[in-house]
Design a protein around this nucleic acid. Structure first.
Lengths: 341, 341
DNA sequence: TGGGTCTGCGCAAGCGCTTTCGCAAGTTCA
DNA sequence: TGAACTTGCGAAAGCGCTTGCGCAGACCCA
């Protein structure tokens, strides 16, 4: 494995010249440059990333922290973040916390140990003391829905209000008056925000919205629906905290012989890739994953260019994507024909 | 940002002692050890990963190369690989090629520049000259279905025969005699292998298997089915190159008013998480993603412990997972009742 | 009591780069 | 024609760790 010294020796220049050729950091005569490049090719020279980063005192890695790569929300986000980063010459150091607080801490430590100049923390529920660790070590960061900013620490707020009021208005205009929300865990700020946004929009137009508990997964969606079906009246539309819950909802309704969207409309949230593929294709409140990835990078990059950057707050709108799981409300108070009964 | 020197100074020992405390690399008296650890805590010391890796000459990163993180096959693989690696004290350097040959090359370069001791290449279709690059730089590797091994280069072969013959036998026993395969791109070795395995198993039991072309995605599955439906007879079962194609198949059949599994059985391949969630839940030939991730790590680790390791060849069985998209074949030659006609 | 073995630790030479400083030769301009 | 730039490059001092070498003192046994 050849080093810069070997390259330098081979073409009779100093190491510093080789370095400057590689990095384009000072004038080198055309002729010398050619010789150096040729020597690099001859020797199959590849730079040593560690040595370079040590000498430079920082790395070209940007951190990206997510909770769970198997959560279908993340791959699109990662890809967009990575694409932006790559375009600007950064590499991405991806870490998943898998919802484990201990792992979360070690992941933050890892970011600092790797001297990343910035890190995007795209998980909800982060201990802000960890954010302090970053600042102490001069690492810029951008959080998701943390609700606060600080020097060196930015925040991206998902604006649930846009998508929520679109969804509510849309349902209202289809004649829905009695709806249910299968909410996500209420210890997650983003789910609280979404719920509040829906409730606000609902009360504005005068639409009744009951809230059932869910846990953001298929099974809890099914169970919530089963509970709903034991109530005296069944809502004409069900909103869900995310698409997985909506899929569970679809399944439970199907199992109960209730037709979607004829009897009950269903609206998800996230717009994961499979929202398109379920039956019927899911109307959903889209969280712009790709936009979020790109924005997270842009915010980070913006901070890197300043020397004592204040954190910024930006917002990203959600929006309703209409597919086939929603339709006009069934006649008010009407029961529905249970298929096969 | 404190360095080892600061820690050493603060408690009056040499840097080497600090280093040995951190790494447990030689005897340090209990008392000195305590003092060092205390100083580290006081200063909030975090080691500099670059300096350490430079001094050691290698990194604690293991490379993992995939093609596309949005392909639902990969997240589970990544997670399992990462979990194994973490457990053994490695970190993972994840890179996606996004099916771009140029990116593939730069990703390999990156692995070498980062001095990873080993890399798992979990994409199909890799230029073996790139594998050569790895060997030159003493990087151990494990490929997927490359069909060859070499010193420092192992291979994991997916054994399609097990799953394929289970699927064929299963269909045969359900009375299916006339089946179709919507095959994947025939320039990918893994798809060729799967197709061959199916054909072998089919001819063994005397089951007719027509082959239609697909491209491993939902749309191509739909189109393939539409083409199949124009033929004089419609097969009683359709096998697909992957689950996405199977989902397309399900949709196209549904759209044509053909019932699954009553009229036509459908079998996918991969067993992606959503195979469980489509309607009806998909019978599929599972490729053990998690097992693959774990095995890739184990193979890599096995090579790291030797100094001039030969590559090994291991195999991983696929298996049929029976859900609800398959059933007894409709009566031979029988047409099917087109719903709504 | 002197040679061996342990235990505990410091010194200093790297690892392979980047980057500051400064020098030499060529060019420009008054 | 000499001061002031400009162009092109080398020497060498780090960056913050790891690790081989070696030394001092304690201990043991013959």
């Amino acid at each position: 494995m050849p080093t810069m010294k070997d390259v330098a020796k081979r073409c009779g220049v100093s190491e510093s010249t080789v370095s400057h050729v590689i990095n384009n950091t000072r004038l080198v005569s055309q002729e010398t440059r050619e010789r150096v490049l040729q020597a690099m090719r001859d020797l199959n020279y590849l730079k040593n990333a560690h040595a370079r980063r040590l000498a430079r005192g920082r790395s070209d890695f940007l951190g990206l922290i997510i909770s769970d790569i198997e959560n279908p929300f993340f791959p699109g986000l990662i890809k967009a973040f990575e694409a932006s980063a790559l375009e600007r010459g950064f590499d991405v150091l991806l870490c998943a916390t898998n919802y484990d607080p201990a792992r979360m801490e070690s992941v933050f430590r890892k970011m600092i140990e790797n001297k990343v100049p910035g890190v995007a923390v795209m998980t909800s529920r982060v201990d802000l003391s960890l954010a302090g660790l970053l600042v102490e070590n001069r690492v810029a960061s951008v959080f998701l829905d943390s609700g606060t900013t600080a020097p060196l620490r930015s925040d991206i707020r998902l604006n649930y209000a846009t998508g929520a009021s679109q969804a509510i208005n849309y349902l209202y205009n289809l004649g829905h008056r009695d709806c249910a929300l299968i909410a996500g865990p209420q210890n997650r700020p983003s789910h609280v925000a979404y719920r509040k946004a829906l409730e606000t929009a609902a009360s504005r137009v005068g639409l009744n919205l009951r809230v059932a508990e869910g846990e953001n997964n298929v099974g809890s969606g099914e169970r919530a629906v089963q509970r709903l079906l034991t109530e005296s009246s069944v809502p004409t539309a069900i909103l869900c905290s995310n698409d997985l819950t909506a899929i569970g909802t679809l399944r439970a309704l199907g199992q109960a012989g209730i037709q979607v969207p004829k009897d009950v409309s269903v609206i998800g949230a996230d717009d994961i890739p499979f929202a398109l593929l379920v039956h019927p294709p899911l109307t959903t409140v889209r969280i712009p994953r790709e936009g979020l990835g790109r924005l997270a990078f842009a915010v980070l990059e913006g901070m890197l260019h300043q020397d004592a950057p204040m954190g910024t707050e930006s917002a990203l709108d959600t929006e309703l994507v209409i597919r086939e799981s929603t339709a006009t409300a069934r006649a008010q108070g009407a029961p529905f024909a249970l298929a096969g009964e």
